[in-house]
Write a protein that binds this DNA or RNA. Structure first.
Lengths: 235, 235
DNA sequence: AGTGGAATTTGTGTCGACAAATAAAATACA
DNA sequence: TGTATTTTATTTGTCGACACAAATTCCACT
């Protein structure tokens, strides 16, 4: 419950309700504020946001289309589970998208793209220095998304965005802090190499760096998971 | 108007309305029965299907999420345009997905998967023999989708499905008949090679055949497009 | 006390109606 | 006659209410 965390009150603009609910719910799901399996109740949401069920439902339809919630007919709808059994398919797709988008960025980026990418990199650096883990996850995501946008392929961009979202849920589960070594500094260095390769339009180097970065991330997540699982067993 | 092509009449089951509208509209869009740019009117659809606007809207939200329709706020919603300017990004993604899914199928397929794939291949062969172009498009799509399913990666599968859908629109524009040479026979041979490579679990061969197949398809489509464009100019 | 079945509760699926926003038509004015 | 402004019309966005289905509770009966 945590009281009403929503501004709710004011009269919002006409078509804004759906997007607002969609984005807030999406963030709550990805940040695990709504953990996998939790029930999403239309009526409850309706009077939490101070609107009717219709716009709520449309937001839910959209979330369902993206696989973030599961709707069982005539009965409740719940936040979708994280599919640990097929995690390797996630890693596989994530790696490929890292590589492809970085390659394309090296090929097609403009000067403005590069500025944006560097700006996000600096933002990430700053969040690292501040030790702000939530900010680190957010700026890291933005950095890679901007690279993908510079690649100018909406098909890759949409799949990559979806993968980054799912990754956000995973990262939330295990937090940066649980990773070993000086992760932020390492990622920062890899990001720098990525930017260098893109700026030089060196496709081969971009591919190689992206692959290494993906491997690095995946290894960290897997380590965190196995460590976590071991603890589960030992209890 | 073409009269009422919908069964509409009977009392349908409780949660079935949305899916029904979604699927029919989706098919009509991909078959160009609803050409790009045509206006989609909620009220018209509502009494065509004999239901209220609410389920119609939910179907439209889903279609919009998949990029098949564009909704301008407070005003009409229309079937999305085919983006000829960025067609190369489509081809790029399509080629990659052909390769990746075929590779994974070679790696992970089961005996049942192979049976299914072969069944679809036979169906395609049959449609070719019958000269049924619509059936050819449908069975060809099913063949490749089944291969992707055998690869067991839902991320690739969903992107690939989306790409195959968009491809369906393109093929409808230019039809098989406008392609040169003995296309069906050629594709049939390539499909055979694909199945052989998958069955042999030869990942390298699967990749190579998939890539060749993709190249072949893309070349045909491009030829059809340029030919079409030339005609436009000459008129 | 345990089990089968009827009533109640809870929450979704659908409806018809209204309000807001935009486009089109009509009107006034120079 | 051409342009600015008001009026009308059309279509979307939202609402509150009701119908239906599943889950739960309650109750009778053994």
């Amino acid at each position: 419950m945590t009281a009403s965390e929503t501004p709710a009150g004011q009269d919002r603009k006409r078509g804004s309700g759906v997007r607002m609910v969609y984005e807030l719910l999406r963030d709550q799901i990805l940040d695990l504020e709504l953990p996998p399996g939790s029930i999403v109740d239309e009526i409850q949401l309706a009077d939490r946001f101070g609107m009717s069920r219709t716009p709520i439902r449309e937001a839910l339809v959209r979330l369902a289309a993206e696989g973030l919630i599961d709707t069982l007919p005539n009965r409740s709808t719940m936040v979708s589970q994280i599919d640990f059994a097929n995690l390797h398919t996630f890693f596989d797709a994530l790696t490929l998208m890292y590589r492809v988008t970085t390659r394309l960025a090296a090929e097609y980026h403009t000067a403005e793209d590069l500025d944006r990418i560097r700006a996000h990199q600096r933002a990430y650096e700053e969040r690292c220095a501040a030790g702000d883990e939530i900010g680190m996850i957010a700026t890291n995501r933005q950095f890679h998304q901007t690279i993908a946008e510079a690649g100018r392929n909406r098909y890759y961009l949409s799949l990559f965005s979806r993968l980054l979202d799912e990754g956000r849920r995973l990262l939330r589960l295990y937090y940066y802090s649980s990773f070993e070594g000086d992760m932020p500094a390492l990622w920062l260095r890899e990001h720098e190499q990525m930017v260098t390769a893109i700026a030089a339009r060196d496709i081969g180097a971009a591919d190689q760096v992206a692959r290494a970065h993906a491997d690095q991330i995946i290894r960290q997540i897997q380590k965190a998971i196995t460590r976590d699982r071991r603890q589960d067993i030992s209890i």
